Computed example of a mutant assay.
Amino acid sequence: MIKDNNQKNLIVLVQYKALPLKRGEVIAGLTELIENVKLEPHFVNIKLHVDSKDESKILLYEEWGDETYYNTTHMTTPHLQKFIGDSRTFLAGPPEISQWKIEKEFKSK
């Protein structure tokens, strides 16, 4: 089944690498960040994933309703800026961020 109603949403993949023995701090920091991000306009969804073979690799799958908002206002929010500053103590470096547009979505019946 093809579903087309969310094709204009922006999908953002954010890949983090935790410093050794800091995975718990990364998860806690991201959880606190996401609780604030959920209150932002144009927020749709975030899923937090941990690599099944390397728990120091953490992926956020984000969905946003407005690309311009994400790339401007969201990036300057106090909660995101605080996380960026705090993350220097538990991340191995800056995250890898990529942005995607939905071409087609397939779901089971």
Rank of each mutant, 00 (worst) to 15 (best):
L39C: 10
V12I: 04
N9Q: 09
K3P: 12
S98F: 00
I11P: 07
I84H: 14
F106R: 05
V37H: 01
L39P: 10
E25W: 04
K3R: 14
K38W: 03
R23L: 13
V14S: 08
H74K: 06
K109T: 11
V26I: 03
F106V: 09
Q81C: 12
I46Y: 05
I97N: 08
K17A: 13
I11C: 11
T77V: 05
L39Q: 15
F43V: 00
R23P: 11
Y70C: 09
V44E: 09
D66R: 01
L60A: 03
W64K: 00
D51N: 05
P41F: 04
L91N: 01
G85F: 06
E62Y: 02
Y16F: 14
H79Q: 13
P20M: 02
K22E: 12
P41H: 07
H42Y: 12
G24R: 05
E25D: 12
R88N: 12
N5H: 14
P41A: 06
Y61L: 04
H74V: 05
L33W: 06
Y69P: 03
F90E: 02
E103F: 13
L59Q: 02
Y70K: 07
I102F: 03
K22V: 02
H79T: 06
G65C: 08
K109Y: 13
S56W: 02
L10K: 00
N45T: 03
G24A: 09
N9H: 08
N9R: 03
Q99M: 07
N45S: 07
I84L: 13
P78S: 14
N36C: 05
Q99V: 00
G65D: 14
E96I: 00
E103D: 15
K109V: 07
V14I: 08
E25C: 01
K107S: 14
E103C: 08
Y69I: 02
T31A: 09
I27D: 11
M75Q: 15
E105K: 07
K107E: 15
F43D: 03
P78V: 02
N5P: 08
V37E: 09
D86H: 03
T73V: 12
L33V: 01
V50Y: 04
A18D: 13
K22M: 10
L39R: 12
K109L: 10
K82Y: 13
L80I: 12
I2A: 08
V50M: 06
I27M: 08
K38V: 01
K17P: 06
L60C: 05
N71H: 15
T31M: 05
V14C: 11
K47E: 15
P94A: 06
L48T: 00
E103N: 13
E105W: 03
P41L: 01
I34D: 07
S52I: 03
K17Y: 09
P94R: 03
E63Q: 12
H49M: 07
L13T: 07
S52V: 02
E63D: 10
S98I: 00
E25L: 03
L39A: 13
K57D: 10
M1R: 12
K109N: 14
W100D: 08
T76E: 15
E105C: 04
E40K: 00
T76V: 11
Q7D: 15
Y61T: 04
S108Y: 11
H74N: 11
N71T: 14
A28G: 08
S56T: 10
D4H: 13
P20Q: 04
P20F: 04
T31Q: 11
E55G: 07
F83G: 04
L39Y: 10
E35N: 13
K104M: 10
H79W: 12
D51I: 00
W64Q: 01
N71F: 15
I34Y: 09
K57R: 07
